[in-house]
Structure formats: structure tokens, C-alpha cells
Write a protein that binds this DNA or RNA. Structure first.
Lengths: 224, 224
DNA sequence: CTTGAGTCTCACGTTACGTCATCCTTTAGC
DNA sequence: GCTAAAGGATGACGTAACGTGAGACTCAAG
């Protein structure tokens, strides 16, 4: 017999609030597949699985409406979801890297001028926030582009889809070998890998290369 | 002559929308210090400096109301702001680290069972989202605790405040030495440093040790 | 002198929920 | 068999941080 959960239990298990689950029901994002006589919500295991997907996508910064649309396309495959997850991870690490570079700059500034002036610090903070802003902007652009392409991909023929998955598997292979060998995140090898990963994405994104380039051009222009 | 900026110009320079600047004016967060005859907003350089602080704090995840309160306490010193920035960086790197560990788990899972079952993947995704949720929750708790303590700190006598700054300078010294020596983020030395940094924070936070401990206890409990 | 770009205020819309208020169900204890 | 406590349901209003017009004003350029 498949066990069914009430809202409160599910809320406890997921850490979400009851109100949130009720809201997801309200907007048709996660409608519990059963109800009791007294209209109590009952969530099946399939519902829970769907909720996991929802949370994953929400984690990636998607709006709830977008998530619903994603899950409506029937062949929104798990590889694709994980693909997104991996990419996101890559970006987060890149951000950390960038931030650390900025911190190094700060440290060096403090090294040269022993007591940094207020103006210096403000200048540094300006740099910090500026790059941060720009990165998140870039991330958003990329996410949008990827979502669009993902949707388009789902409308392509199987051949190309399989190609994309092959690329993805290839990258995963590499990642795994590096991970199992205990390599470090900041080693040149991994950075090299990140570049190839980016190229892989470029191939994956296919036509909209211009969008990607624009983001990068803007970034380097900003960096001068 | 101090140059004054109109909203549009400031918006372009900061990447914020005009509406956002108007909103900040509306809620009293950033009230332009001048207006033209026709009520055009004019932002002085002091205003811009304040905006930088605002963006820095916003970047740290503070609510606008909290930011306003922060900036209202007159001796909300720059070291404190940068202190927060550094801590945040530390946390972000910890999150990346954690995520990467999860990814490693995923990779290993895929290694053992060549074609991972849907259930396996869901399980992994569950772990991913769970830890993520928990971390952000922890981060929020810490941020709140720190804000409170920061406010209290501002009400302490100068001695203790200077002590806190000395601690901070000490940590910065260490960071700098590590950075200039090109050490890696994931090296045991830096992790050791992170631990000491945490202890420093603990000292900094002073009384509310319990709050900190609760957060960590919850984390390890969750991690079982 | 008009046109176009920039600005103003007012005001309603949006997202993802939080927070009551009020009523209904279910379970445990007496 | 009754009651109290716990859990749930449905409105409905509140919130944060803006987005998005509508309609009027201002300012520099041709």
C-alpha cells in the first residue's frame, strides 16, 4: 500500500511551511493527487518526487511559473535537470573564485598602504559590488538562454538530443576522474576543464552563440 | 565643485533601475541630498558613497530595513562592513565545498551503478536540496545573530570595540599572508584558518554562543 | 516653438509567501 | 459519550522590493 502524507508531515520532512505547500497547490504547481473525505490534502510518493524536482529547480533560481512550465513538458528529463545543476555549481565556484581574487586585491591594497583610507575602502567595495552585480546579471542571462534552448532542444529530433547527452556524459566522465583522483578545485587542470565545459555548453546551446558572447564581452568591457 | 548626478545617470552607473532609486528614496534609505527647482533628484558624492554601502550590505543578504538601521547607527564602521564581507565569503566557499562533496557523491553513485535509477537520482537530489536549504537557513541565523551583536557592540565601550578590531586585524593579517603566498582555498592550512576565524567570530559574538552552537548542532544532526 | 528625452508623482500589479480569523475533523482521555 | 487538543481547510489581508504604466512637467536642441 502506498503511504500518503498529510501536509504537516510533508512540511516537516521537507522543511517547507504548510502555507508554501498550500500555495503550490493553489497555483497548480503541486496539486496533491488525493484528498480525504474532509478535503485533507494527501501527498503520494509521486507527488513527493515531483516536489523534489520543484525544489531542485527552485534552487537553480527559476520562478515557480517557469518550473511549472518545465514540468509540463513531458520529456523534461533528469539528465537535463542535473545538467543544470552541474552548470550552476560551476558558476558558483567561478563566483567564489572571482570574489577571492577581489579579496586578494583588497589584501594587497592594505599591504601597500598600511592604514587604508576610507576612500580606498570605498573604492574596493565599489569594485566588489560591481563585479558581483555583473556576475549575477550574466548568470541570469545564461539561465534564460539555457532555459530557452532546453525547451527548443526538447522539440528537436532524437539524434541531436542524444548528441547533447553524449557531450554531457563525456563531461561527467571527466569530472568523475578528476574527483576520484582528489584533484583540487582551483588547480589549473580543473580550470582547463571548466573551459572545455563552457565550450561544451556552447555547443549545447548551439545557435544562440551571440548571446553568450555578448555576456562575456560585456564582462571584459566592465573589467577594464 | 562637487558634481551632482541625476537619477538616470546614477542608475546607469550602478546598474540599478530608476524605480529602485526612487524606491530607496521613498523608504528613506537613500534620500538624495539635493533637488532641483523642478524636484529633480540630485545625488551628491556622499550619496553615492552611501549607496555603495547599501549595495554591499544588500549583497550580504540584509533586508533594506535592516540596512537603514545599520546606517543609522553612526559608528557603523567600515571594518565592520568588511568583516561581514569576509565572513560571507567564507560561508560561500564553505557552501561550494559542500556542494562539491555532494557532486562527488553523485559521481560515485553513477560509478557504481552505471545507469543510475530514477530513484537514486531523486534520492541524491533530495540530499542536495536538503543541505542547501539547511545551509541557507544556518546562514540566515548567523546573519541575524551577527547583526544583533553588531548593534550591541556599537553600544559597548571603546575598549572592547578596539579589542574586536584587533581580532579582525589579526585575522586579516593571516589571510593576507596566506594569500600572498598563493596558498589554495582548500588546503588544510586555510581550513584551519577558517576554524580559527570561526573562533574569532565566536569571541566577537560574545554572549550568544548558544545561538551559534545551536546552528552547528542542527547542521551535524542533519548530516547524519 | 515644438519635439524628444528625461523626470515627477500617483497608483495599481507581481511574486512567494506570512499571518491571522473562523470553522471543520480527527484522535485521546475521562 | 463528551470534550479538549491538535491538525487541517478556506478566505482574506499583509509584506518586500520593486515593475509598469498613466498623465503632467522640464529641459536642451533644432
Amino acid at each position: 500500500m502506498p503511504k500518503l502524507l498529510q501536509v504537516g508531515e510533508l512540511a516537516k520532512q521537507t522543511g517547507l511551511s504548510i502555507r508554501t505547500l498550500r500555495y503550490y497547490d493553489e497555483i497548480g504547481l503541486l496539486v496533491p493527487s488525493h484528498r480525504t473525505e474532509a478535503e485533507y490534502r494527501l501527498y503520494s510518493e509521486a507527488d513527493i518526487a515531483r516536489l523534489q524536482q520543484i525544489l531542485s529547480l527552485r534552487q537553480l533560481g527559476f520562478a515557480l511559473k517557469e518550473i511549472r512550465e518545465c514540468l509540463e513538458t513531458p520529456d523534461f528529463s533528469l539528465p537535463n535537470v542535473i545538467n543544470l545543476h552541474l552548470t550552476r555549481l560551476q558558476e558558483q565556484m567561478a563566483v567564489s573564485q572571482s570574489l577571492f581574487t577581489k579579496l586578494r586585491t583588497l589584501a594587497q591594497q592594505l599591504q601597500t598602504s598600511r592604514t587604508a583610507s576610507v576612500e580606498d575602502l570605498l573604492q574596493i567595495m565599489e569594485n566588489l559590488t560591481m563585479t558581483q552585480q555583473y556576475l549575477t546579471q550574466e548568470q541570469h542571462d545564461l539561465l534564460e538562454a539555457r532555459l530557452n534552448q532546453l525547451n527548443r532542444l526538447n522539440q528537436l529530433n532524437e539524434e541531436q538530443a542524444n548528441e547533447g547527452q553524449a557531450e554531457w556524459l563525456h563531461f561527467l566522465e571527466e569530472t568523475r576522474s578528476h574527483v576520484t583522483q582528489g584533484r583540487d578545485l582551483n588547480s589549473p587542470e580543473v580550470q582547463q576543464m571548466a573551459l572545455r565545459w563552457r565550450d561544451s555548453i556552447l555547443a549545447f546551446v548551439g545557435g544562440d552563440l551571440k548571446l553568450y558572447e555578448a555576456a562575456y564581452a560585456g564582462l571584459s568591457e566592465r573589467g577594464r
